[in-house]
Design a protein around this nucleic acid. Structure first.
Lengths: 106, 106
DNA sequence: TTGCTCCTCACGTCACGTGAGGTGGC
DNA sequence: TTGCTCCTCACGTCACGTGAGGTGGC
């Protein structure tokens, strides 16, 4: 209870928009742990941690559906997903680098 | 005429989808130079070149609207747009690298 | 009552993906 | 007629963005 934050506070903390969290809620990735007497959504420490983790996955380029599939999976599954995603990112970076070099010659 | 290609041929050449080119046409970025006797869309060399250029801009992360604004602008404007985009990309890469390193410690 | 913050819809956006339904030469 | 390719819509998708309309304490 003491560690609970409102939606706004969570958004400020992680620098994400209200709508992003709302999106997570819609697909069932997270849900407010409770509401205060004014009906404001509250998120406990655990949920805050979960939100920031989902956000990191998203930044790595995983799709919401993919995150749904791995977020509650065993550790080794999550690690595997992250590793293969990083491999994909590296490939993309290489492609992009090639393109940049090409464009530089224009 | 001799150098003209059909939509399918252009798509195969640049490895893009039919819908991508259609999207470019919708916003007026390109248009088929003519159609053959069967009504099939044809693109001449110049248009093919334009399509591949738009695609490169897109790969660099420019939005369709932004491409519309610079594609027919003078050389120095286009170069500036590309350079500032590359700067943006570098920043994103750094951010991503930081995130990857963070995730690696999990 | 005014001002402020928060809530829950729900349409809008972006760049296509993915058929549907129709045409035309072989 | 069958099979194939091409065409033009047009709804679907993804992950939010951006209000609209309403609530509640001060």
């Amino acid at each position: 209870m003491e560690n609970c934050k409102t939606l706004r506070e969570v958004c400020n903390l992680f620098e994400i928009s209200r709508r992003v969290v709302q999106g997570y809620e819609k697909v069932g990735l997270v849900s407010a742990s409770e509401t205060n007497k004014y009906g404001h959504l509250l998120y406990d420490r655990e949920t805050q941690e979960r939100i920031s983790q989902i956000w990191v996955y998203k930044q790595l380029g995983l799709k919401i559906k993919e995150i749904c599939e791995v977020i509650d999976a065993p550790d080794f599954v999550r690690k595997k997903a992250i590793e293969s995603q990083i491999v994909r990112l590296k490939k993309e970076q290489k492609q992009l680098q090639i393109l940049i070099e090409k464009v530089m010659k224009w």
